[in-house]
């Protein structure tokens, strides 16, 4: 199977999970498409080096998570270059976009994604993998940290997310 066919087949099978991961990192719809395409680009470039020693899904999650983290760094830098007024304006736009069905039309799921968007980048990675229902071992392989650490972090993040989720719920009335 040539590279192009192999790539197409992998993307066909995993497009949804790549997209879902991007949803957890990027609030803005257009930006999310950019990150999604960047992730596909990095998958394409890395395909020759992928020897199948790990699961395809693990490889995909790693590449996508690293791409998203890279994007957050670039994005933060870009925002730092903006003046204070446009930064405030942009934050408002991002907030509005967060409300535009990140992955589902449901208000509560939307609110959940909004809360995820407020987490620190690394925590977003963990939550996105948790929502993919990966095992602790799977998350540990992707992140390169111990399983015990993954468990501790997930436990803490679930509590933090739940608190944020309930607070925003009260705020909404």
């Amino acid at each position: 199977m040539d590279k192009e066919t192999r790539f197409k087949s992998i993307i066909e099978e995993n497009r949804d999970r790549i997209w879902r991961l991007c949803c957890c990192y990027v609030a803005d719809e257009n930006e999310r498409h950019d990150v999604y395409q960047d992730a596909l680009g990095n998958l394409w470039r890395g395909l020759d080096g992928f020897e199948g020693r790990s699961e395809v899904s693990t490889w995909i999650y790693r590449v996508t998570a690293n791409t998203c983290l890279g994007h957050i760094r670039t994005e933060r830098r870009r925002r730092e270059l903006l003046d204070a007024d446009s930064r405030v304006e942009e934050m408002e736009i991002v907030d509005q976009n967060l409300g535009e069905e990140p992955a589902s039309g449901n208000d509560d799921v939307r609110r959940l994604y909004e809360c995820i968007g407020r987490l620190r980048p690394v925590d977003r990675t963990l939550v996105s993998l948790y929502l993919e229902e990966l095992s602790t071992k799977g998350m540990s392989d992707i992140l390169g940290i111990s399983e015990a650490n993954v468990r501790v972090k997930i436990h803490r993040l679930k509590k933090e997310l739940k608190r944020m989720f309930e607070e925003t719920g009260h705020g909404l009335g």
Binding site: R17, W19, A103, D108, V109, L112, Y113, K162, F165
Partner: peptide, 19 residues
């Protein structure tokens, strides 16, 4: 809908039609 339902729905939710 409560927290647990939201988490479950987010886990089950399939990606939107990317295309």
């Amino acid at each position: 809908m409560d927290w647990d339902d939201a988490i479950e729905r987010a886990k089950r939710s399939r990606a939107p039609d990317v295309a």
